[in-house]
Amino acid sequence: MIESMSHGIGVDIAFLLLATLAVVTAWRVFRTDSMVRASFFLLVSFIAVGVIMILLAAEYLGVAMFFMMAVEMTVMALFMVMFMMNPAGLNPMNMVHQERISIGAGVVSFLVLSAMALLAVFPDRPVSAGLDPVRSLGNEMLGDSMLIFESAGLVLLTTMIGVVVLSSHRGRYGAATEGSLPPGLESGGDPAGKPEEDEDGEDGGHHHHHH
């Protein structure tokens, strides 16, 4: 492989350290006992990749990676605390299924992709010295590729609406079942398929029904 970018030995050393850090922390994500720690390991892996992007002169993308991942992994850690049984890692955790197939799939995909990286011949056209990457990205996003950029924004807006619909357990006028009881099996009978809440009330004294 031709050395296609003029940079010092310092950049190479930094890249080696960051690459090791990114892979080791990525591996530790699935090997740590604590789910909160797992999300922070993932954050470290992302930050290492972001620094590598900055070394590659893609400053905007590297810094955007820092901000995005810092927020994303904090949200992830919060979700871990909310939903998972063992966020603090006080007990050993190994929640895996089909592990052998998964290891095989991971190793095979790594080998195939590495073979492509090493054997394929890619054109050697490095970034020209006079290029300002941030300016060129800005001109592209608000110029020729504006439609793509705006579509991404629209998809994000659609996602926000969909997420609120999915995660909200009530609609604008109350719960999903409100005012929409199914008709009875006989005319005038009880609604069909309605969970019988009032009948199992012997141990449910804390339920408050408003009739």
Binding site: M1, D12, A19, V96, Q98, G106, L113, M116, F122
Partner: peptide, 30 residues
């Protein structure tokens, strides 16, 4: 830092990710 080493790093991350996505039981870990 060459294209090949960068792609090897990317391949390692993708491989670990595929392992995690296939093996984890918890939704958030997946």
């Amino acid at each position: 830092m060459t294209l090949a080493t960068l792609l090897l790093l990317a391949a390692a991350l993708i491989g670990i990710g595929i392992y995690g996505a296939l093996s984890q039981q918890s939704f958030v870990m997946l």
